[in-house]
């Protein structure tokens, strides 16, 4: 009887050994999915200046040729200004000439995105002034806590004063529902261009975003193909280096670029650095015992067990986001 010997858990376990072969497989599959299965003749991709969209754009340029890729920057009033410079640099690096700028601020104003969000924040922090204050929502609990995460709203005043309060459920839901207009408006604009050109929309979520539910249903989750949806974040970085994504993009801390205050993805959702999360997620997904993972990660078995439960909970509670309509 044949038995498979599993690799011992280590910090290198997610390292892609032959990066060129993996890239070529993704490129070949992407080309086949878009041109054969979806019967489309090119790709539309929203670029933010972040690592995931940059890698997807590089893969698309190689799969379809740069002249068959339309890259679109979709900023709004809360977006970081650096993103535009980086997006231009990225497009130039991969020879994308069809680089469009679609500012969605007016569309968001029309939906009442900012007004609805700011009303909810002001109900929790009464002296919040959206004209001058910055705000964000974040999880303050440790991922190893055995309770599900709860969000707090943090307001930063112009003098640096920070006010933070646990968000009541109604306000939390209203803030999330309002800001989700951003991702859904971007999706609408991407499909406008995709239909205009008979192209497919390339989705940029990575494995964590897909499986932990860190995406907006019918927003950034609304796409035709997701070429890096099976890759851990550290593997996306490996691809980025191999494909020649500009170093400034690789060096940037991943942010949500959704709230007015600086907010990393770690603060907002993941509760731990990517390098740790990737490895522990791999351990959980592949049934490595918590003590084996804990020894490598310098954490207690109890901490790893709690983090495993946190992952389980996130996957389960976000199942709704990944479900197709039921009929």
């Amino acid at each position: 009887m044949e038995t498979t010997i599993r690799k011992p858990f280590s910090k290198d376990i997610l390292q892609i050994e032959n990066i060129e072969i993996v890239c070529n497989e993704i490129i070949s599959k992407l080309k086949n999915d878009v041109t054969r299965k979806l019967q489309r003749r090119g790709a539309v991709i929203g670029i933010s200046g972040g690592i995931d969209s940059s890698v997807c754009m590089a893969l698309s340029a190689k799969a379809f040729g740069s002249k068959n890729v339309t890259a679109i920057m979709l900023p709004e009033q809360d977006s970081n200004d650096d993103s535009r410079v980086l997006a231009e640099k990225l497009a130039s690096k991969f020879g994308i000439t069809d680089l469009l700028l679609e500012n969605i601020t007016n569309a968001l104003d029309g939906f009442g995105c900012y007004k609805r969000r700011d009303e909810a924040i002001a109900r929790v922090i009464s002296d919040f002034d959206p004209a001058v204050d910055k705000a964000k929502i974040e999880i303050k609990q440790n991922a190893a806590s055995n309770l599900p995460p709860a969000f707090s709203v943090t307001v930063i005043k112009p003098n640096g004063e920070i006010i933070s309060k646990l968000l009541p459920v109604k306000e939390y839901l209203q803030i999330v529902a309002s800001t989700n207009f951003k991702q859904r408006s971007r999706m609408s604009m991407l499909y406008y261009h995709a239909e205009r050109l008979h192209y497919a929309v390339i989705g940029t979520p990575n494995k964590h975003e897909v499986e932990q539910g860190f995406f907006v249903k019918h927003g950034d989750g609304g796409a035709d193909v997701m070429p890096i949806g099976h890759l851990y974040k550290t593997q996306v970085y490996q691809l980025a280096k191999h494909l020649g994504v500009p170093q400034e993009i690789i060096d940037r801390t991943p942010t949500t670029d959704t709230y007015t205050a600086e907010q990393t993805q770690e603060d907002f959702f993941y509760q731990m650095p990517f390098e740790q999360m990737d490895l522990i997620w791999y351990g959980w997904e592949n049934n490595y015992p918590a003590n084996e993972v804990g020894n490598v990660m310098n954490k207690t078995t109890q901490d790893i067990e709690n983090i495993y439960r946190n992952f389980e909970r996130k996957r389960k509670t976000t199942e709704y986001l990944r479900m197709r309509p039921i009929f």
């Binding site: 309770l147 599900p148 995460p149 709860a150 707090s152 646990l166 009541p168 459920v169 509670t317």
Partner: peptide, 30 residues
């Protein structure tokens, strides 16, 4: 799995409405 993360938020709201109990960040412990 009786309650999930949204269940926790709704429970906190219930405690406030029913018992007038406000829960703070630091009280969110197992």
């Amino acid at each position: 799995g009786v309650l999930d993360s949204m269940g926790l938020l709704f429970l906190i709201e219930f405690l406030k409405e029913e018992f007038n109990i406000t829960t703070n960040d630091e009280e969110l412990v197992v």
